[in-house]
């Protein structure tokens, strides 16, 4: 696995969850990972059931086998002030700039600058070494912006090149691009087995490839269990209701006669089967579309009890089982 793992996906597909599960999976067996949030939503804190993350690296979870997951919510404004202080000793000027609205300008409006600051911070964590020359983090996992914006977000060089042709922002962008376009980076896309997210995934991969950014894996999230096989689906279309009522009755669900408890279950159960069949067919089509993209596919189960910390560990175990380590 590459050391910088970027996780993107359409809104609502659970990319924060997948990024967190990936950070946990990669931390297993004594590794240390950093989970980075760039959109200021505090999704990581919610997921790990802790208070809001400040702008500092902080341990938030212990992985099976003694590994550690650190988290960092990057605040672009603070990152810029940091940066000014670090490289130019401009702390005071930074405060004055802030008063003028320049920091706001640079971090929310100025083209690409915000993105350079965010990706720059992640790349710095990837390259950081301790006193003994070892990498501080084995892996950095970034919960990145959604598919629609990911290429633009990562391709900071192109975004900034036309604007800042010289100067520190320009240099920073160059340094970031060296990491992002190298084999040290992989961009994963999270999707659901639904039409729009799959379409967006296909489009996103096209854009990433066109920009020569390293596409990694497709993570299919919230996959529902297959509860009815093909043969059952076919039988459901033609089975006499009386036969079904009797089987339900034999399973202890009441009378099979007309109006009996078991008999009254038949209609609704078959209706649910029909909905299932429709979804099943749609999912099969979407799987086929994904398979054509020619990337490694991972499937993560839908957690019927909702997403919580235990569920997160389950997903990370699932990822390990599927060969991510």
């Amino acid at each position: 696995m590459s050391r910088l793992q970027v996780v993107s996906g359409k809104g609502g597909t659970g990319k924060t969850t997948v990024a967190a599960a990936l950070a946990l999976a990669l931390a297993t067996e004594g590794k240390r990972t950093l989970l980075v949030e760039v959109e200021g939503r505090q999704g990581i804190a919610q997921l790990f059931e802790t208070e809001a993350l400040p702008y500092e690296e902080r341990k938030i979870a212990v992985a099976p086998g003694g590994g550690e997951v650190y988290a960092l919510a990057i605040d672009p404004e603070l990152a810029l002030l940091d940066y000014l202080q670090m490289f130019y000793k401009m702390g005071g000027a930074g405060r004055a700039l802030k008063k003028l609205g320049a920091i706001d300008f640079a971090t929310t409006i100025a083209p690409g600058l915000r993105d350079v600051l965010l990706t720059g911070k992640a790349c710095e964590a990837v390259r950081r070494k301790d006193k003994r020359g070892r990498f501080v983090y084995d892996y950095v996992v970034m919960d990145a912006p959604p598919t629609g914006r990911i290429t633009r977000f990562l391709n900071v060089n192109d975004e900034v090149a036309g604007l800042a042709k010289i100067g520190p922002i320009h240099n920073q962008a160059q340094a970031v691009m060296r990491v992002i376009k190298s084999p040290e980076t992989e961009v994963h896309l999270v999707t659901l087995l639904e039409e729009m997210p799959v379409q967006e995934t296909a489009d996103g991969i096209g854009e990433l490839r066109a920009a020569q950014l390293p596409v990694g894996r497709i993570m299919v999230n919230m996959v529902r269990p297959a509860l009815l096989d093909e043969a059952s689906l076919e039988l459901a279309q033609s089975v006499p209701r009386t036969a079904l009522a009797k089987t339900l009755s034999s399973a202890g669900l009441g009378g099979a006669r007309r109006g009996g408890l078991a008999e009254r279950l038949v209609g609704p159960l078959l209706e649910q089967a029909e909905e299932y069949a429709e979804r099943y067919a749609l999912e099969r089509d979407q799987r086929a579309v994904l398979a054509e993209l020619g990337l490694p596919l991972h499937e993560l189960p839908l957690l019927t009890e909702g997403m919580d910390l235990a569920g997160l560990y389950r997903l990370s175990t699932e990822l390990r089982k599927q060969g991510i380590s």
Partner: peptide
């Protein structure tokens, strides 16, 4: 097959 289907329907439910 009928029992399998019925079991499946119940799990789906």
């Amino acid at each position: 097959q009928l029992t399998t289907l019925t079991g499946g329907l119940l799990r789906l439910h």
